[in-house]
Structure formats: structure tokens, C-alpha cells
Design a protein around this nucleic acid. Structure first.
Lengths: 128, 128
DNA sequence: TATACACTTGAAGAGTTTTGCAAGTGTTAG
DNA sequence: CTAACACTTGCAAAACTCTTCAAGTGTATA
């Protein structure tokens, strides 16, 4: 049996609340699912590169295709997935369709993860 | 007809008539790949919930299992994926193995995405 | 040492996703 | 109206991922 005498027991006693929900199982199942979908959409090298490219400015599909060297269909397909998660916004102008990051939150998230990924491995004292 | 301030509408066969900054990779390709892996690891509801749980404090596998009601194996498997992307850190103490978020960057990223996902749909002027 | 406990790992099956090509939609020019 | 251009979507094959169960590793205790 587990004896919690080892250390500060990680008991779920959260005495830092009076009228706010103290024991929220999660931040909200729906929000969690949306967040997971968002991460999953961004969790692909090709799509993440697309986001990174768009973070530098609005571009139309042809321009993106020219930049990455990929097929129009492939770009469009990826953009569709990104758009489904509201990561990018679409704007039509004449024959061209311009894409850009949906909002600054996306750019922020992008910056955060790229910064984290750019850093060398975090220091680990033991077992890694 | 397109309005006055047409952003150099690329109506010709060569749509690269823009005069914006150069478009090379701002982050290294390796960083991009790491970031994608990180997103992909977090892009699963079960794993994201794990991260959210751990953001509240360090826990051992049994405790997590008790909280989520999942099998030890399942938890361990997910934790492994999270650990492979350096999202969580492991610490052994006797028979127990404690997990926690790898660093504050992860907690930050988590907060950012959950905040974004918690918001209602962003207002869209047109095309949605 | 042997046993129980806590966790980890391997492997197979099910389910989901990515990809490439071809056909389809919307828009402007003639 | 027809043609060309820019992009989007459907479909089927291939690739990948998640879950589950059984067996394996490491640690503490009798």
C-alpha cells in the first residue's frame, strides 16, 4: 500500500479557494478537446511550416506553393485543416485567395513553441 | 472590380510581384520539426489532459491513474510520448515515479492554448 | 533470496489521417 | 458564352497512431 509519509503528499487538497471552483477536473472538457485539435492541426511539419510562413505575412496559395515547392492541392488541403481549427483566415481577392494567421494568439502560440523548440535540451539532473 | 488599394493584385501568370521582406526560414528546420513533434505530442485529448493535470503539481503514475480512471499502462504509454518530446520530467523516489511538467514554458504554452480554446469563436467579418 | 509493488515496454488490431491524382467550383478576360 | 486561371474537393491506397493485454524491469521488504 502507498504510504504518503515519503514527502509532501500530492493530495488534491486545494485550500486556495473560497468561492471559485477549486477542484475542476480539467479546464473544461470541451476546451480541452478544442485545444487538442488545435495542437494536432499544428503538429505536422508541413502545416507548421505553413503557419510559420504565414506568420510573416499574408500570401495567396500560389505564392505559398512557389515557396514550398509543393503541389497546389497539397497546400490547399493543409490550409483547409488549419482553417478548420481556426488557425488561419481566408480572404478572397479576384482570382486569388489570400491566407493569413487567424489572430495574434496563433502568432503568439507559434512564437512560444518555436522559441521552446529552438532552445537546447533543458538541464536534467537525473534520469533522462 | 478590385478596390483602389489593391495589394499589387497578381492577375498575371506570375504572381510574385510583391515587395515584402525576404521569406527564408526564420527558425531552423530542426526547430520547426521539434516544434511540430511537440505539438503533435500534445495534440491528443488524453495526453493534453495529462499535461493539464500535471500543471497542477507533481504526481506519481498511480495517482494520475486514480484521477483519470485509466489503466497504469495507458498512463505510462502517454507519459512516455510526452517525455519523448521533453514536455514532462520524471523523478524516481523509491517505488514511485513522479511526473511533472518539464518547465515553465510548457505550462505557459498550455495556458495559452487553453485560454485560446476556451474563448468563443472569434468574430469574423466575412468568409467563414 | 524470494515476493510484492510500481511502473514500463512490446506487439497486434482497430481506427484515423495523409497523400496524389483527377474532376469540380468560382472568377476574370475575350 | 467560352476559355483560362486559381484554387478546392472527392476518392482510394498507403502510412501512421491509439488502445489493450501480456510480459518485463527496477525497488523495497520479509
Amino acid at each position: 500500500m502507498i504510504h504518503d509519509s515519503d514527502r509532501s503528499a500530492p493530495s488534491e487538497t486545494t485550500p486556495h479557494s473560497h468561492d471559485h471552483a477549486p477542484r475542476r477536473t480539467t479546464v473544461g472538457p470541451a476546451a480541452l478537446a478544442r485545444a487538442a485539435g488545435l495542437f494536432r492541426a499544428a503538429g505536422d511539419p508541413a502545416r507548421l511550416r505553413l503557419l510559420e510562413i504565414l506568420s510573416q505575412g499574408e500570401l495567396c496559395v500560389s505564392e505559398v506553393a512557389a515557396l514550398t515547392g509543393d503541389d497546389l492541392s497539397a497546400i490547399s488541403q493543409r490550409l483547409r485543416i488549419l482553417r478548420a481549427e481556426h488557425l488561419v483566415a481566408r480572404r478572397r481577392e479576384g482570382k486569388h485567395v489570400f491566407y493569413a494567421l487567424a489572430d495574434s494568439h496563433v502568432a503568439d502560440l507559434l512564437r512560444a513553441v518555436l522559441a521552446h523548440a529552438s532552445e537546447p535540451a533543458a538541464p536534467h539532473a537525473d534520469g533522462d
